[in-house]
Design a protein around this nucleic acid. Sequence first.
DNA 1: TAGATTGTTAATCGATTAACAATC
DNA 2: TAGATTGTTAATCGATTAACAATC
Lengths: 212, 212
Amino acid sequence: MMVSNKIIARLSQYRRLLHNLRENGLTNIYSHELASMVGVTAAQVRRDIMNIGYSGNPNRGYDIAELVRSIAHFLDAEDGQKVALIGVGNLGRAILSFFIGRRPKLSIEAAFDSDPQKYGRVIHGCRCYSSDNMSNTIKELGITIGIITVPVQEAQKTADIIINAGVSGILNFAPVALRVPYNVYVEDIDMTTTLETVAYFSRHLGNNAKGV
Amino acid sequence: MMVSNKIIARLSQYRRLLHNLRENGLTNIYSHELASMVGVTAAQVRRDIMNIGYSGNPNRGYDIAELVRSIAHFLDAEDGQKVALIGVGNLGRAILSFFIGRRPKLSIEAAFDSDPQKYGRVIHGCRCYSSDNMSNTIKELGITIGIITVPVQEAQKTADIIINAGVSGILNFAPVALRVPYNVYVEDIDMTTTLETVAYFSRHLGNNAKGV
DNA sequence: TAGATTGTTAATCGATTAACAATC
DNA sequence: TAGATTGTTAATCGATTAACAATC
């Protein structure tokens, strides 16, 4: 089976939507319905669902509750995974407030900053630690995912430290290509670049060959 | 010429890097050097540069200053483009502080919120307007790009209003597939989905077939 | 010149889409 | 049953990579 990051991203979107639909009392859904809500093709939805080993029924489509369970079983670690955010600036704080309490299986357990004004406090419900002792704290808490929101000059150093402490997945907001070992996964969110892409295609929609 | 959003994103990254290198006194660069810094192949760098109509020299590689000019000429609108941010919550404010003053050709000229505590003020250097009069304000200021950071329930409504007021490019942070006319370009940043992708591949790196 | 690099075409690769038999 | 939908294979599409002649 071929599992690309695009498939995982779509599964995550399916789950979120299905979760809402179930709360509204829906029990079944057809591929084309889900597809139009997510903005993909029905064939793609069917293939993604096939990929995770769940099966629908030609008469009733997919059972929403079961499909949500299947996706959760596929995506989530059984015992959950713990996340740390490094860099409690404006963006870091916004991300803390955004994620706190959202996914119990993927919870931000710690924030780190080098500013004494920031560590030692609880910010948006998250305990903030000194980055001096980051490596030990990450090990003690059993954190395996890092969100990097430090200034670009510190991003690589930060990555090195948290990887050494046991982090194997990084969501990186710093605009730099991090160098990491082959067994560490990095996903970048580069807001400047994305905004420039929007600006370009807002003027050149004829050329648009959107792939993501 | 085929111009995908990936090419535009890479060009944006090349420009940022080259800009820094030039400030450090470098005048020339080879494709493989730029490639290793951005994390792509040298062939890809050469093809991208070819795409924008700039040429290097087998002896000296690319002239950094000229290449930056070529990329700017390709990416930027001559007279610049104006951006509005809608939704001055935690994330919205963080994005304001992130972008303000960064790119003169792509400047956030206005923020909008429905909360009287927020509009009428200047936040992170950006004037905040009431969203009651959003359509007119956008028209008057000549804004063509929107950044949507409102709650998910309001995102579609917000998109409809700003598109009607003349916006043709949207950077959307709300986790919903916006329905827009064919001549409007939308790029989504979905932090929850991206974090879930990181979590998945941090546990399954053997399956990793990263495409972005 | 010799050698490294560029520009550009052809081959490869992977993901998406189309198509349709199997199913309820 | 008839008809719509699912599961799954084959065809298509686009982007990346490999290769190499042209160039300085």
